[in-house]
Write a protein that binds this DNA or RNA. Structure first.
Lengths: 353, 353
DNA sequence: CTGAAAGCGCTTACAG
DNA sequence: CTGAAAGCGCTTACAG
């Protein structure tokens, strides 16, 4: 007996979750193969991949992002490009992007798009920052020149909340026309026959869709189409103020106003009060988006909830996947996904008095 | 000659920045010693530490967080606990916490504090989630029972935006009294002699400080102190509505209203319009915080900018440092830091007509 | 299509 | 007070 062997020195206490090695053992393959499956690489026998997949679910394996980025080197660099959105919209949007970027170990650069920048220069800025892909919330995603310049620079793009998805580009949207249609129908069901609309900005394609939904609902409800009941707006509170004044000054004013976003709806409520019209007793006002404004003011706004954070998160995820796939020479087809909206009933709408 | 050796196989292309090994080489010590210096551990000879420090700056060395977390194992777990804040405030606050947490490779858990939870149970929830430290924005940080329960559970705490920093606890604040004082002086300089105040929530200590600043400025300006000019509020839009109605219904109404946050100021503007008082021509209204609301409504609000995101970021950083120091048995003294505020002049204030 | 080896940059656990 | 060794969990670069 030469004595007891020293206890093996472990450099650290064992960690929590299963690792790639555990999965490999269970699946009866090498860690390398597991890595290939995780990263969706081609050249893995279908049934091998299958076995690995089973082992992954069985063990509840989740890749360790730290190890991944240490070993992997290259990190996906995304840019979020925006112009004059409402602060509330942007912050919710950002939240979604940030959450996904951090979960996927990607870098997110947040850039305000300079007002009258030439599309080519914008593209140059992106490539100078070594950006791989760009998230485009509206109205930027509705600008063909920008889309064109960015795409030509080899950037992967996603349009978020556009009314006009481009075939070759990723897009995540909601059905704006259906949402506006549902809201208008809701108003008609409440007995309103003169329903005013405050339109969104003309440079955002979603605005036209919302208008279409409104028009269609009017027709379906057998309500006359009165062009004086439609006032222009640009999504700003200030434009909502002007539009509501116009509507309420009509010889025969509307009994309900559907504003194409919450900021304009809030403005309409303010104007109503100025005219000593209680909301919703004397005037119904509803919005769209369900941003913070909807629950800040009083009465709280009945509105369409647009899942902004989810849309941003999904857009980010799509871009990261597409970028990584591209690095492996495995181009992916453009994805066009539409998320669900919800009509949120709160306190600003009521039956026709 | 036995032939040419095969070119050494490198598993990857070399990476960008300098590593701990580079620093060690330049400083003439082992990587281990560099690691100790980076992490601020005790037991390093002062001049050794100095040499390492010099090498670090010379090379522009920055630790790789991925490697750190892979090797280190333990990640700092922070919780952000909040109750009924305005959505705008919370989202800006969150942004700051998130940015710092991700930069420092810490985990951030975001929890809404259940309405009437027993402090002991709240503490139990935190320890069950293996939380190391807790960020407490107001009004939670103004609740002695919660502070006490959390501290007793061994959690490191930071109070953010409290009016009453506790000696043994970290805190980051602005000088609320000085800010309110400056704003009130600004109003007096505009010629206003009847300046109304809509107070903040009574359960937030910062509210009392703002009131003090207002009182002091009044006295310094030789303006009479009229208690009817001070209306209660709780930071909600709705409370601002009621307070402004009260103020404007006074036999001798104020010519300027200073609301203790932007939501209440927005409500005051709405009420002014209801009374057919143009802002700022017929009534000056100013706010506090500079949240999204300030620039959403029209006219845009003159207000006090509170650097919410910076405060949140700093609070997060303090907690992470303190937690890591604690792990190394190197307790740190409570830090109390005060950040600068700014009076932002926009369109809602004007000279006395 | 699959695997063995090397290495990413740092820290833990020891030993001196 | 300091350092040599092992290892964190994964991927790259090869070789078969």
């Amino acid at each position: 007996m030469t004595g007891v062997l020293p206890a093996p020195r472990t450099a650290r206490r064992t960690r929590g979750g299963p690792t790639i090695a555990d999965v490999a053992r269970v699946a009866g393959v090498s860690p390398m193969t597991v890595s290939r499956v995780i990263n969706g690489e081609a050249y893995v026998q279908p049934d091998t991949a299958e076995k690995v997949q089973v082992a992954i679910t069985e063990l509840g394996y989740v890749p360790n992002p730290a190890a991944r980025s240490l070993a992997g080197g290259r990190r996906c660099r995304l840019a979020l490009l925006y112009t004059n959105p409402s602060a509330a919209y942007l912050s919710e949007f950002l939240m979604g992007c940030l959450a996904q970027a951090s979960a996927s170990d990607a870098l997110l650069l947040v850039n305000a798009c300079p007002p009258n920048i030439a599309p080519a220069e914008l593209a140059a800025q992106m490539t100078a920052q070594h950006v791989d892909a760009v998230i485009l919330p509206s109205p930027l995603c509705d600008n063909p020149a920008i889309l064109e310049a960015l795409a030509s620079a080899g950037l992967t793009l996603v349009q978020v909340a556009t009314g006009h998805p481009v075939a070759e580009i990723h897009a995540v949207t909601i059905d704006d026309a259906a949402a506006a249609h549902e809201m208008t129908l809701h108003l008609a069901a409440l007995g309103h026959r003169r329903i005013g609309l405050i339109e969104g900005a003309a440079n955002q394609t979603a605005s036209a869709l919302r208008r279409q939904g409104y028009d269609r609902a009017l027709a379906e409800s057998g309500l006359p189409r009165d062009p004086t009941l439609v006032a222009a707006g640009d999504f700003s509170y200030r434009s909502g103020l002007a539009a509501a004044e116009l509507l309420l000054a009509l010889p025969e004013p509307p009994t309900a106003i559907f504003a194409c976003n919450d900021d304009m709806a809030a403005a309409a409520v303010a104007v109503a009060h100025r005219h000593h019209l209680e909301v919703p007793a004397a005037l119904t006002v509803v919005g769209f988006d369900d941003t913070a404004m909807a629950t800040t003011i009083w009465p709280e706004l009945t509105t369409i909830r647009q899942p902004v954070a989810d849309m941003a998160r999904l857009a980010t995820e799509i871009l990261i996947e597409a970028t990584r796939a591209g690095w492996q020479g495995r181009p992916v087809a453009p994805r066009h996904v539409q998320l669900d909206y919800t009509l949120i009933k709160r306190g600003s709408d009521g039956e026709l008095p």
